[in-house]
Design a protein around this nucleic acid. Structure first.
Lengths: 347, 347
DNA sequence: TAGAAAAATGTTGACGTCGACATCCTGAGA
DNA sequence: TCTCAGGATGTCGACGTCAACATTTTTCTA
């Protein structure tokens, strides 16, 4: 049995070749190998070549765990959310990933299962000394006032629908889009605007509903209680079947595009013309909105900027930048007018 | 200046409290603290309490980097893909994440920028000795024959549209869905089925196109060259405007649902009835498909099972299970008939 | 109550890396 | 040929954890 085999048996050899393996092969000390990795200009070209060659042959690459242990830095950021398969989260995740890579950071996903059962705090804590240098929290469901109980000075950025003051945040300026949407419909002559909201435990849903209500009030227009949906097209469809029977409804602002698609479906089925009889506006600006029947007027959110800004703010904190207490960035949303909205016409 | 401050200045103190900090506070040895974390039953209840208390007070939690260094295991898996914001990737990512958490694994995202410029291999290699114990590769674009050049015995599972033999894989059985779709249309009396494909550099796109062609041939039906799209609804729309002028087209199988939405849009605009004049089938089974106008017949992919199986196969490898050379799992796809398909009618 | 088994706790070292410091080598100038 | 600066390379130790082994304390038996 070779000594290598013995060594493997003893150590388990789960790790790849180490700096010492390379050193031995190249006939230099470990430190020189380290220098070749980090400050090659300090090593004589001939030696450098030899080391590089040994690295190549052994398939060496520095062990991140060891580096992390030594430096206390992981080169990684955590991304916390409920789910990652919905429009907003997926788009933001992708943008965060790209922004992080620019800075040589990797991204670790962490999902918080049920908002009720296990709160955000435990999940966040689980990460604390784990493998990330900072945390981006994509919060939507759940009570946004719940404090996160993270260690002091731990870099955190929150993506919320409103500042909660607790942490720096990047918020989507949803009210601005909602106002534009409401105004757009009112300008078209509608007497009021109905609203199909998201679930009540969702912060963005509340923010959108509130902005809608406030705008109607500000315009001196009657407010009809919103109908509660759950973000899904199915809910939009169900609700649409009810709305179809109500001649009072001539303009509907949906909490998101999916809901709008469901609504459009139901109205179409009932032979109600959009925008002839009812105008519909969505929210999110998903790519399919342009190809709804009819093409959907919607409020576009800029998830790319959101992701970029989140990373930016987080990295600032990780670098210990002069953090004036609470930087907040608002990413504007924008009304995109298509063909699902039109002048009011008595039904 | 307090000694704490000095200590912080010297060490940088980037890391949180260590096992020794807890040990000192609780008046025990480091090993006892370690035991409380890992095998609490070996510690006398009274001592255990004291240690737990100290941990709580200090906000201690074990340092993962140190564990990883010692054990050679990171407790983390890497997820490699081009993008994470498209239907398939996003759904799979979410499923992978859930499956991974069940096994106490975290998930690190790695994106491969341009398939051409930087290949998969460098990205994969970058991870190799980095911070993951295994790798899940969500491959779509790029040449699937390119070998990955990973270290031998490194656990890898590939999600591809076809086995490439190189690694264990979980594939979506797309041909089965495609065949069902083609048969469905042919059964409805259509003389042939046209195809709007995905981009030619995409493996799933090729697989779908091939399955479609093969089925037509097998059925002895004339094959018309597919029209190349790019997965987007916009492309579907553009292509739809051309197709609208061609009375030969009575049934179209789209490479994905987005394309189908665009197509539906274009046809609707031209006053071409679906399914009266043209039948349309999508692929993916996104939730919005049920609410297209008309509700879209599509081939549903089971991304949840995909994610679960990927993790399953990967964990098997990580545990060094008796890997009969190449386990391959095929997740079936399924035709979902809705209202966008109907009997052929001469246009 | 001695004696021994069992339970509880402590000590040591190794995982891989790299900063700080020490040592060695080369070549220029005297 | 000798000295010395500077370049090149080497040695040491610390980061936090935990298996293996060592030691101490408790508990039970005869």
């Amino acid at each position: 049995m070779s000594s290598v085999a013995i060594n493997e048996a003893r150590t388990g050899r789960r790790n790849g070749p180490s700096i010492m393996d390379v050193a031995r092969l190249a006939g230099v000390s470990g430190q020189t190998v380290s220098r070749v990795s980090n400050q090659p200009e300090l090593v004589k070209p001939a030696t450098r070549e030899r080391v590089l060659h040994a690295m190549e042959k052994l398939g060496y690459s520095p062990n991140r765990a060891a580096r992390a242990l030594r430096d206390g830095v992981y080169g990684s950021i955590g991304l916390l959310a409920h789910r990652f398969d919905r429009t907003g989260e997926a788009m933001t995740t992708d943008a965060v990933l790209r922004a992080a890579e620019t800075r040589d950071l990797s991204v670790t996903l962490v999902s918080v299962h049920e908002p009720e059962s296990e709160g955000w705090a435990p999940a966040a804590k689980r990460l604390q000394h784990q493998t990330v240098d900072g945390l981006i929290i994509l919060r939507s469901e759940g009570d946004s006032t719940e404090p996160l109980a993270l260690p002091p000075r731990f870099p955190v950025v929150v993506s919320d629908s409103r500042e909660n003051g607790q942490y720096p945040s990047v918020i989507n300026d949803e009210p601005i889009g909602v106002r534009a949407a409401v105004d757009h419909l009112l300008d078209l002559g509608h007497r009021t605007v109905h609203h199909i909201s998201g679930p009540t435990d969702s912060e963005p849903a509340r923010v959108r509903a509130t902005a809608w209500r406030n705008r109607l009030v500000a315009k001196g227009v009657p407010v009809v209680e919103p109908i509660v949906g759950d973000w899904t097209a199915d809910a939009g469809y169900r609700i649409g079947q009810q709305i179809a029977d109500d001649p009072e409804v001539t303009a509907v602002l949906c909490a998101n595009d999916h809901t709008a698609f469901g609504l459009l479906h139901a109205l179409h089925e009932r032979g109600i013309d959009v925008p002839g009889d009812v105008s519909v506006i969505g929210f999110d600006g998903i790519s399919l909105a342009a190809h709804a029947t009819p093409p959907l007027t919607t409020v576009r959110q800029d998830f790319t900027t959101m992701g970029t800004e989140l990373v930016h703010l987080l990295v600032d904190q990780m670098n210990g930048a002069t953090t004036r207490k609470h930087p907040h960035v608002a990413v504007p949303t924008e009304l995109v007018v298509r063909e699902s909205t039109g002048p009011m016409r008595r039904r």
